[in-house]
């Protein structure tokens, strides 16, 4: 579904990715982890075509992004939903208008249909009724994440990109988010690519995980990856927090 080959990303002299390979199959939940500043968000932006890679190729649904014309691009955009690390809701629109933005553009202008779909999206992400009239600046951090997810789900995409969806959520909401994601994943045949630092989320939801180290990616099932001798991976998977998270999912 997603195939990245030999990706090189540079900002001036700073090399972020150096021959990174990544592959995501249909129907899986793929987690991307790595230290702060290792280029997870940059990788996501590259896959989405928001940043041009310096070298290497990116394919979505088996097609390279470069060869698409405007029509094909619009068709592709409707197949995936994205949440950005900081929400990126349009600040001058209410939550409801944010959710309706892609719907209005690609689906329908009927007010009842828009209202119905808005309510559905807000219900799915667990935003209480009444939130839809608020402006992004009036939301808490966690509510912003949910509203962004609601907007990403509006077109009922088959592929979901999430940049740190549980960061800033309280543990109970984060756990509820994991369940929601698993549920949507199983019921809606979703493929999910998720950047996360949250070990609980990682072990609970991700079938495979890719770690960005030294500009390259090492991927595998979480438990298999935990055996990798690289010091960062060892520290990540066997630190005090990791142990607790692993024990929980074992038991």
């Amino acid at each position: 579904m997603i195939r990245v080959r030999g990706l090189v990303s540079r900002f001036g002299g700073q090399v972020v990715h150096e021959g990174l390979d990544m592959q995501v199959e249909e129907g899986e939940i793929f987690g991307i982890v790595g230290g702060s500043g290792t280029g997870k968000s940059v990788l996501l932006r590259t896959i989405l075509g928001l940043k041009r890679p310096e070298a290497g190729s990116v394919e979505l649904y088996g097609r390279s992004l470069d060869g698409l014309d405007a029509r094909e691009r619009a068709a592709l955009v409707q197949k995936y939903g994205v949440t950005f690390q900081n929400g990126a809701l349009i600040s001058s629109l209410t939550v409801a208008e944010n959710v309706r933005l892609p719907l209005r553009e690609y689906r329908t202008r009927s007010p009842e249909a828009l209202e119905s779909q808005t309510q559905l999206c807000l219900a799915m992400v667990g935003l209480p009724p009444g939130t839809e009239e608020k402006y992004p600046a009036q939301l808490s951090g966690g509510m912003t994440k949910r509203a962004a997810l609601a907007r990403a789900l509006a077109l009922e995409p088959s592929l979901l990109f999430l940049d740190e969806p549980t960061a800033g959520l309280d543990p109970i909401s984060a756990a509820a988010f994991d369940e929601l994601l698993l549920y949507l994943h199983s019921r809606l045949d979703l493929t999910v690519v998720m950047i996360t630092h949250d070990l609980d989320t990682l072990f609970r939801t991700c079938g495979r995980v890719g770690v960005i180290i030294d500009g390259k990616m090492r991927s595998g099932a979480p438990r298999q990856l935990a055996e990798d001798p690289h010091p960062w991976i060892q520290a990540y998977f066997h630190g005090p927090r990791a142990r607790a998270a692993q024990e929980q999912t074992h038991g």
Binding site: L103, R107, R109, S110, E112, A113, S116, L155
Partner: peptide
């Protein structure tokens, strides 16, 4: 499917 939403609501 999702793309028929407007029609169905009508």
């Amino acid at each position: 499917s999702a793309s028929a939403l407007g029609e169905i609501v009508e």
